[in-house]
Write a protein that binds this DNA or RNA. Sequence first.
RNA 1: GCGUAGGUGGCAGAGUGGUCAAAUGCACCUGACUGUAAAUCAGGCGCCCUAUGGGCUACGAAGGUUCAAAUCCUUCCCUACGCACCA
Length: 400
Amino acid sequence: MNSSIDTSEENIRNILTRGVEDIVVKEHVESRLTSGEKLRVKLGIDPTGNTIHIGRAVVLRKLKAFQDLGHHIILIVGDFTAQIGDPSDKLEKRPMITRESIDENLKNYKKIIGKIIDVDKAEFVYNSEWLKKLGFQEISELAESFSVQQMIARRNFKERIDKGQEISLREFLYPLMQGYDSVAVEADVELGGFDQLFNLKAGRVIQKHFGQPEQDIVATAMLEGTDGRKMSTSWGNVINITDEPNDMYGKVMSLNDNLIIKYFLLCTDVKQEEIKTIEKELAGDANPRDLKMRLAREIVTLYHDKDAADKAQENFINTFAKGGVPDNVEIVKVKKGTLLADILIQKNIVPSKSEWRRLVEGHSASIMGTGKKIEDQFEKIEEPGVYKIGSRRFIKIEID
RNA sequence: GCGUAGGUGGCAGAGUGGUCAAAUGCACCUGACUGUAAAUCAGGCGCCCUAUGGGCUACGAAGGUUCAAAUCCUUCCCUACGCACCA
């Protein structure tokens, strides 16, 4: 019995339900959590990205919940596996990554991840440490535990096969490696996104092979991006946990209405009963905007602080609801008579003169407060003021 | 290695000598409408030029044929699929 372990029923229930898509051997984890043992909780992290978005944060927050209960958390840095490319979240082969960029990224990663978990109390290990040492004999033995049928039945692989796309044999080895990680750290529980389920389960198989007790698995729900599609950096529908408050707030506000509840559930600490109330309000005649504002505040507070959230909200209301000026507008001093287009391009507000011409033709540029639209692409700056281009690009111009 | 089909704008995908800065869809930008969005409708979507016009760059790379090439030829590079090799 370890007295530092929190075994309260409510917390345990929360940890096993909220944002959880699937649990393998639910009763088993439940009883272990209740037992007061200090569990070794594993999460594999991918050191290739340089940002963390709130979709990935879901599983990290789950890890944090385990940490808060007093369990030992272990983050496996997949430096070895990254060289192969995890097929779980892609329908295509992933490019392999170099050693140097992994080191570089980890430093960065730790800093970011510190916003969620207590990095000092967490254990970080590189999986190359043990995977590098495996010889062909061991690998063959590991491979014995899986069948080709199992592999090709996986959704990701199956889709690729159906499309006639190539699957490298080494991609089949990925689950073996991730599974072996569990053996190396003697994991009691492994966390992961629902898309990882196959790999997570592989850990059980391999642990069994090595005579270890099988780990339990907690697979978290997947979070859609702001537009409702899969969250992906290349779609631009991503909220990064390192985003500036105003930016983060704005992105949450641009969320599809039907994702509000899911975001509350997966991305905030708002109590579940309270979320139920919000759900009712949403079904009633509440303005979704207001609930979204609440959501945005919660999220900004989580990754920045309450003060930043207040300011971001004020800024949002001011800029979008009232059509005012955001508080972080860039200010430039220019000489009277300067070509407006030159300034805008120089400041990267507008990418090219052609683009600027189109914007002017579309009546998208104006001087705030004066109601003056800019109708001439060769407009010269005659008066100071805040120039608004489109709905969200601003620049404050002062006469030098 | 042999064979086949291909490599086109952010992506998908038409075009196969001039009418092609390149259809269409997605994404993106702008306007209208709204409740911040979404949906819808309208416009735009290589760059440059004070321009209902002109120039430049672009269809894997390099050369060539032609008055004219994304389109034809040559070489090269790359991708997928099949066959062969491994047996």
